[in-house]
Design a protein around this nucleic acid. Structure first.
Lengths: 235, 235
DNA sequence: AAAATAGTGTCTTTCAGACAGTATACA
DNA sequence: TGTATACTGTCTGAAAGACACTATTTT
């Protein structure tokens, strides 16, 4: 029986059971109006042929955030515009081989940037995801997900929706210059429902987070929209 | 250098560095109009004389939630009305003795219930907390907190505020029967600001989560308020 | 009656949804 | 000129803040 550590004298190493700790990354973007996450096909048992989140063991001298950034750099090449810890999962049976506690993170990237980083790989897919953690391939077929990763995906979508209105997270999914239409489509993809255009514009502009660039779209067959950018100011 | 595990063949135990994993608990209540958390005075180095959150090591065969419930039972006797994972902290230097990753939880209890469970102990205090993680003793003196526990406290207060409006968490801080005034005082303590009474009543009653009991307060020197209870219905 | 809080009515402001209209690019 | 989308004006309804008022209990 374990006892509460703050009751105890200084630790005896025999007192604590060492566990493996990993970080799993939900790397998301909005592509073609759908919220998607990067999944990797597993080659080996268990769950061979199933799709899993990219992850890594946490090193002995490494913080959780650093481990997450390391996974991100491996998959997407250095930068993400948004990286945040999501939730930790520690069911003793979540990995059938051994006891592993995982700390899930989620990261956001503009679609163009993420797709560019992925080109060489064939075992990676950007899967559309829903609030229940369901993942769907290019032909809308359901993908079988490994371990408890469906649950992690569901948490990520939920967090994204919850923070959309009061954070700057949507801008991490867009290039530096974007139109209000682009921004609305990102919001609609995350919330999975259409939004009222005038109300959306008013709400966004009233927040004062973005400013017009004076530039306009080009190459469109209809009236080009003004390009906005995130204001550089505080926080 | 570690490699992403989903690239690797089945684990070689030498591949992963085992870490100690603990659970720390922010056990909160509202007392005398102030949001407070349970802290325990540390007897031994490091941080002897400082105040720390109660915690425990996570057992080899034990889920994170179960470990949190175990700490809760040790401090408050079985029941909490609300227990939720908060955030994980894994800075390599957060504990000077050894590498410890901690998963923080927070739990809510009515003040009367928590105070009853605490009576025998003198090394425990219900400290008023603020959004910056500051902790204050019975005479409003600032308490020195151990490890990164101030940061954990700040996260807990922030989470509580964020979820107050769209969850039932406030009711976990009240007895089964309570007045609308009691409920408003709980909200005000968590948000640390006064609320408008008619607007508060309308908002709460329109949500339909509570129902009048037909009973009234007794023993008050002024008009007794109606006692409400949480409706037993769905979710 | 005084004191103290419970509980209500109503005015105003704010903000989102709805919807129709005008504006401007290219084919 | 047609078409597609950008952008705007305005009505309506929902909900919160402010504030004054009435109600009900004990002392």
């Amino acid at each position: 029986m374990l006892t509460a550590m703050s009751d105890a004298a200084p630790y005896d190493p025999a007192d604590y059971p060492p566990l493996a700790v990993t970080v799993d990354l939900v790397l998301m973007t909005v592509r073609d109006g759908r919220l998607t996450a990067l999944l990797q096909r597993r080659e080996y048992a268990p769950f061979a042929g199933y799709w899993a989140l990219p992850g890594t063991f946490v090193g002995q001298e490494e913080s959780l955030d650093t481990a997450a950034q390391r996974v991100l750099a491996e998959k997407a090449g250095m930068g993400a515009r948004f990286l945040e810890q999501l939730y930790s999962f520690g069911d003793p049976l979540r990995d059938p081989r051994m006891r592993v506690v995982t700390v899930a993170y989620f990261a956001l990237l503009p679609a163009a940037q993420l797709e560019a980083a992925l080109t060489p790989r064939t075992d990676l897919v950007l899967a559309a995801v829903d609030i229940d953690g369901g993942a769907f391939g290019p032909d809308a077929e359901r993908l079988r997900t490994a371990f408890d990763h469906a649950r992690i995906l569901g948490h990520a979508v939920e967090r994204l929706r919850g923070k959309l209105d009061y954070s700057k997270l949507a801008f991490a999914l867009l290039p530096e210059l974007f139109t209000l239409g682009d921004l609305q489509r990102v919001h609609e993809a995350i919330l999975d429902r259409p939004l009222n255009k005038p109300a959306f514009r008013r709400r966004i502009l009233d927040r004062g987070l973005i400013e017009g660039s004076g530039l306009r779209e080009t190459g469109k067959t209809y009236r080009p929209a003004e390009l906005y950018r995130l204001r550089k100011l505080a926080n």
